[in-house]
Design a protein around this nucleic acid. Structure first.
Lengths: 193, 193
DNA sequence: ACCGTAGGCCAACAACTGTTGACACACAAC
DNA sequence: GTTGTGTGTCAACAGTTGTTGGCCTACGGT
């Protein structure tokens, strides 16, 4: 057990824990869940593999800690309704480039049931919530959020995972100008227009 | 060596080869590349694991054979320019539901470099080729094809891999009516309209 | 009827995996 | 200084993986 008498006193091992988490995110993002071995992660963090087990219990526990993620979606009630799409795609691009946690989660979700479940939860708890803040028909909210997810995740998949050359090379600003109208229509438009 | 004297004579083992391939596609589609073990595939095909090695050389060779895929994209020169988007999304949906090979390739591409390379090739050889048949500026062809791929693969990812409930439950016809305009704009429109 | 060979199974290998327990050191409290 | 606890290493475990070679069987051409 690692339960100090004074619960909030900084532990001497905090640096090690952080190093493990950083290495884990890198490896999970680069290799996916099953190819990212505990031994490799421990080597990156320059500690013994058994430390990973002591601090995170198991490989699944480590992944759960490493894939903790907050989309930090902006409050759409403070955004002009005509700019929902642009604000969202800009936010996603920035969030994605700056933090490899989402890439790790995306890669792992393809093959690991637990990671897929976590991805569904992230979608249901955060994206659906953000979409439902402004007044659309509640009956269509989930579907609109799903469509947004399909375009945003597809963008991430082609750009960061499979790395299709045209999607890797394209200027982010041009990406925004192409994708923003798509998200805008998914959020506020009607089908078949 | 399995080189018969009369090269095109049907081999007695053709049924076994086909059974292996079918089981391999199922397992790769359901579990991804690393979780799909040769032993499990062989058990599904009711043969010994060593047979897989004899007929396909290695796990990578088996995957290469199982992930052989032709998108069978329609000839867009025979389609009214205003219906490119609708024709494409209908075709993709049908192709996806009827054959799990693409799901196998998609899942594997997340974690296996070879599968990702194959996905890039499929994109470059087949989708870019189809897009360039009609007269858009050649300089933008690859980008337009990339955007189409991002939406189509994102749809597949959310619907068949992660299985986001709203994307799984949505009626295919409604999916068409939402996504067709997106693809249409990626193919023939201008950004920021 | 004979015999080469393709089809198939079995057992084992070496490498790698997540995971565990025993042991050594260092620091802080008393 | 002693003691206890948190931090870290080492070696080994049991299971699984891709892969290999030997052996038996049964078909098909002659």
């Amino acid at each position: 057990m690692t339960a100090p008498a004074h619960p909030n006193r900084p532990r001497r091992s905090d640096a090690t824990r952080a190093a493990i988490l950083r290495a884990a995110r890198e490896r999970f993002a680069a290799d996916g869940y099953e190819r990212a071995t505990i031994r490799a992660i421990a080597a990156d963090a320059r500690i013994d593999p058994s430390m990973v087990m002591r601090y995170y219990g198991s490989k699944e526990g480590l992944f759960a800690a490493a894939a903790e993620f907050d989309l930090r979606l902006p409050d759409l009630t403070a955004v002009p309704p005509g700019q929902f799409g642009e604000v969202l795609i800009r936010h996603f691009l920035a969030r994605w480039e700056g933090d490899e946690t989402l890439a790790a989660l995306l890669r792992a979700a393809s093959t690991n049931p637990g990671a897929a479940e976590r991805m569904r939860g992230l979608f249901a708890d955060q994206l659906v919530a953000a979409v439902s803040t402004f007044g659309t028909d509640p009956a269509t909210t989930a579907r609109r959020a799903g469509l947004v997810a399909s375009q945003v995740l597809g963008l991430a998949f082609t750009r960061y995972i499979v790395r299709l050359p045209p999607m890797v090379d394209v200027d982010p600003e041009e990406l925004v100008s192409w994708v923003a109208p798509t998200l805008q229509r998914y959020l506020t438009g009607l089908p078949e227009n």
